[in-house]
Design a protein around this nucleic acid. Sequence first.
DNA 1: CTGTATCCATTAGGATACTG
DNA 2: CAGTATCCTAATGGATACAG
Lengths: 123, 123
Amino acid sequence: MAIDKKHINIRNNKEYHCPVEATLDVIGGKWKPLILWQLKEVDVIRYNKLQQNLHGVSPRMLTKQLRELEEDGLVNRKMYPEIPPKVEYSLTEFGWTVAPILEALCDWGSEYLGRQCTLGQEE
Amino acid sequence: MAIDKKHINIRNNKEYHCPVEATLDVIGGKWKPLILWQLKEVDVIRYNKLQQNLHGVSPRMLTKQLRELEEDGLVNRKMYPEIPPKVEYSLTEFGWTVAPILEALCDWGSEYLGRQCTLGQEE
DNA sequence: CTGTATCCATTAGGATACTG
DNA sequence: CAGTATCCTAATGGATACAG
């Protein structure tokens, strides 16, 4: 019976057959977990700094992923009407709910792939 | 200083700047978390059943992702020399270490996207 | 049954130049 | 500074057919 219950994603109206699949559709994608991790570590970050810390993401992809995270309600975009422009990204309250996932990803990477969690804390 | 320490992945010799990134390279990919979740739920599963439960993955993609998971030591492939052939997939001991990640993915999907964890348990 | 091979369409992603 | 626009390649995915 449960197999017939489906969930519809806000953004793309896709149907899911499993909660893992649903999660992946929201925070999956090559850069999204890294973006979310970054935001979680530093709270607020500007576009430029974000791009640097993701070492090598193209502006096209960064913008695309940020827009999707915004649409899904995970990320907040605050624009200051200045010249030159200033835009700050941060996690929404809803965005903070993915923190346990990010921590699980980080813990496993640190423990089993031999590196510490230092992103966002480097000197 | 820590920013200079890199980790090399067994499979593709890629360098990582962050443990999250390293994790994504191993269990990222569209089907991998779903495959791992499936294996975690049912312990042992045959190729055919796996393909059915992933509702729509093509044999080409399924095989590819399974091979990579094998190479990374997460998945065990047991072949029975029979006709017709029988192949069983399961998590290795190392593979079981990703369980917390899978559970975090499932919990979030269930809680925030409104569906229960039932995959692998449907009647 | 468990795949591999092939062809094709779609999409994700990278490089770079440029704009308000 | 914070992105767009453009062009391009690589990866993904679907539909078979077929092999051992």
